[in-house]
Amino acid sequence: MTEPAVTDPAVAEPAVNEPAGNEPAVTDTATPGLLSGGWPTPAPGAAPLPRMVRGQAALELRTLARNGEQLLLTLIIPVLLLIAFGHENLVSVGTSNRIGFVVPGILALAVLSTAFTSQAIGTGFERRYGVLKRLGATPLSRRGMIAAKTLTVLTVELGQFAIVLLIGALLGWRPVASLAAAASVPLLLLAGTAAFSGLGLLLAGTLRAEATLAGANLLYLVMLGLGGVLFPLTKFPAAARPVLRLLPAGALSDGLRAVLAHSAGLPARDLLVLCAWAAVAIALAVRTFRWE
């Protein structure tokens, strides 16, 4: 790091940190505090990566929490569907354990809404408004940007899971509590998150923001309908079932349900399907993502 020569030593004083939040007057005219004593000298340097990632993720979380449409998508719709379908016999789920069927589906929907739809729309508009371009000129690397997005998605999902599990419990949900479940459920959720994130970023990095918005919402509805979230895959024609189980939403809801409702062991096939989607989608997203 080189410090350019400064002609007047009086202007070399660094900025003095003043306690924030006790501004004397709220005005919109420039107060010359920084300028009257001379501008501080250059002192470039990057913050530690974890601090940058935390800061960026916190900003993304705060802006998400203020975004009504995103909250509708990630929280309100899943919760309403959980209550409606968990409480009333709106569709025949082919099992007497209705709530045991609905909760795993809603968990899959939570992952789909956050990792895919919400992330695709948010990233699409960040690209459109030059946010990613501008971030590219900060010390936060692209790797750091992806880490911040992942941290944001995982944090939102943890909140969603807590709410869904709480409401499920209130509606009488009693999941299978087994070692296999404790091991399989986090793996399925992580693999599902990776697959949907890859797909979401693939969409956001290649299409215009409006097209991403439309596409992400459309696929949300399609996967809600065909992904075994609320309507059992057994209700579909026998020929269609194997195909639907190869879709990421189908594999995720099917795997969660097998473990949590039917005491299955590790659902290897569903996990494999999700990992394959993740690998292909992320590889494609990395190759095709355009930052502007």
């Binding site: 900025a15 003043e18 924030a20 501004e23 920084l34 501080p40």
Partner: peptide, 19 residues
């Protein structure tokens, strides 16, 4: 927060008249 020795954000916000 991305930088090692940043200016104080509140002070800078005042300097550009955005307080």
């Amino acid at each position: 927060g991305f930088y090692a020795h940043p200016l104080d954000p509140a002070e800078l916000l005042a300097a550009v008249g955005l307080t």
